[in-house]
Structures are given as C-alpha cells and as structure tokens.
Simulated scan of single mutants.
Amino acid sequence: MEEQMANLRLTDFEFFKIILPGSSRTKLKLPDKFARELGDRELRDAKLQVAGAGRRLWDVKVFDDDVNGDVYLGRGWQEFARAHDLRDGHFLVFRYDGAAAFTVTVFDETMCRRNYRRGQHDPADSGSSSSSDGSDAATAVEGVGDVAASQFAVTLRQCNLGDKQAQYLNVPVEFQEAHGYAKREKVVLRMRGEPWTVRLKHSRRERGQRTAFRYGWHRFCVDNGLAVGDTCFFRVLREGDLRRGGGGDDHVLRVAVRKADGTTLE
C-alpha cells in the first residue's frame, strides 16, 4: 500500500533538463527534488519514450553516486541521446509515470519542440511497412497530444528584456493556435506560488497572426530577476473556457526558469 501511494504521488511528475556544453554524454543527472521524492524506493531500470517518435521504449539504467548521493540515468542514456540527435542547448522535459517510465519532449536550438516522425530515429521501426492501421495512427497522434501542445520553452534575449514599454515575448505559433490565443485577452503566469497577469498583444504578419506577452510581462521579469540567457519553460496549468466570455481569463501557465548560471527557479 505504501509503495502504491508513492507511485500515485509521482504519477505525471515533471521536470526539465538542459544539455549543457561539456556535460557528460554517458549519463544524465536527475533533479535532487525528484530523487528525494523517490525516497528509498529502488529504481534501477527505467524506460524512456520520446513524445511523437512512435511507441518504442528505451532501456536505461538508473544509479546513485556513492560520493554525493546524486541520481543519474546511466547505461543506455548515450544510445538514447544519439538516436534522437540530442545536442548542447537542447531543452528536455521529462514526465514520469509513477512506475519506471519517462516520456521525454525535446525542444531544440530554435526554442521550438522537435518533431520526430515515427521511425525517423527508431531503428526498431526501420524494417516495418510504411503503412499502418487506423489504431496505430491514432496512438501516434495521442502520444504527441497533451505533452507536446501544452508547453514551450524560450531562452530570453535582449528584445524580451529591453525598455519597459518595448518588452515582449512571442508565443510559438503552434502553441498559440492550440490554445486559441487569437481569442484570448490575457493569461496568468504562475511561478513560485504567485500569479502575474499578462495582457496579450495580437498583430498581423505575412504568415498569419502573431501573439505576444506584452503588458505585465515586464513586471513578471523584474519580480523574478530574469536576465538574458535565462531559459523559461511555460506549461498549461489551467486551460480556461473561452465559451464563458471574458477572453478566457482563467487560462493559467506555470513557469519554471533555468538561470544562465545553472540554478533553477519554479
């Protein structure tokens, strides 16, 4: 019963990692908070699956560093990283299922989610037929669904942190379309347990409408000490119902920040 409760607590536990220059290619350190949540439970074998890359599960060993107590993904991690072309600067979001499997969403140097076609980086699928039945196709789409469309990451530049009257942050087109930002007037950013209301600015571009965080974004950056080079991760915490009017005022995004010096705020 105690183990079942622990599994339930960790179900859908999420964290992110950034592949930093000079970091080890053979192992990946798991966040201390996640390791603490695991407690004394034995997690020696894990499964990794990339969102949108089919249903293959990759076997990875988990081990503790006897010197400092850190927990790592070890043997199998290098093969997983190579197969999915993971590089310095890539931003990885892990979702744990509470048992021993992680779903990994990859954001590349463009600050957008990397799309993996089924079989593109999956040797196990290389010999399969190009056709698939309806159930397989539906499963592949559902695998991308909630995780991929509900979050995005941005590394801050000077244009995001300039003069107060000129500060803005563009929302990725895929994300804004998935959540009806054309009809929204504002969003609530929640970080460290506190909310900040940010107005959205809509503009027409040659390739369609673009939405940006505008009024209130400056205050959010100042209050949280954000700087150029910090990476912000935004995830939908509450969708908000546009049908009720008011521009979907109850749309809430949870924000976590990886500072340029490697520390984390959330």
Results as ranks from 00 to 15, higher is better:
residue 112 C to G: 07
residue 140 A to F: 13
residue 65 D to G: 03
residue 107 F to I: 12
residue 84 H to C: 01
residue 70 D to Q: 04
residue 76 G to F: 05
residue 168 Y to D: 12
residue 136 D to I: 04
residue 92 L to V: 02
residue 97 D to P: 13
residue 136 D to V: 05
residue 66 D to I: 02
residue 75 R to W: 01
residue 90 H to T: 00
residue 102 F to L: 08
residue 117 R to V: 12
residue 76 G to Y: 04
residue 164 K to C: 03
residue 56 R to T: 15
residue 80 F to R: 03
residue 104 V to C: 10
residue 168 Y to R: 15
residue 101 A to I: 02
residue 86 L to Q: 01
residue 91 F to P: 04
residue 125 D to W: 03
residue 84 H to W: 02
residue 132 S to L: 06
residue 124 A to I: 08
residue 129 S to G: 09
residue 154 V to Q: 14
residue 97 D to H: 13
residue 81 A to S: 14
residue 138 A to F: 08
residue 98 G to K: 05
residue 66 D to W: 00
residue 85 D to R: 06
residue 120 Q to D: 14
residue 80 F to W: 05
residue 99 A to R: 13
residue 86 L to Y: 00
residue 98 G to A: 06
residue 156 L to G: 08
residue 58 W to K: 04
residue 51 A to C: 12
residue 132 S to F: 04
residue 161 L to Y: 07
residue 85 D to E: 04
residue 150 S to D: 14
residue 101 A to T: 15
residue 150 S to F: 10
residue 158 Q to V: 09
residue 54 G to S: 08
residue 146 D to W: 13
residue 97 D to I: 12
residue 157 R to V: 08
residue 151 Q to F: 06
residue 158 Q to L: 10
residue 72 Y to T: 02
residue 136 D to W: 02
residue 155 T to N: 06
residue 112 C to E: 14
residue 156 L to K: 09
residue 124 A to N: 10
residue 152 F to K: 07
residue 140 A to Q: 09
residue 155 T to Y: 01
residue 78 Q to D: 04
residue 89 G to M: 01
residue 149 A to D: 14
residue 108 D to V: 04
residue 130 S to W: 08
residue 129 S to E: 07
residue 137 A to K: 07
residue 146 D to A: 15
residue 163 D to A: 14
residue 132 S to N: 05
residue 108 D to E: 12
residue 62 V to S: 10
residue 123 P to L: 09
residue 87 R to Q: 10
residue 51 A to L: 01
residue 147 V to E: 15
residue 87 R to A: 09
residue 152 F to W: 11
residue 158 Q to M: 10
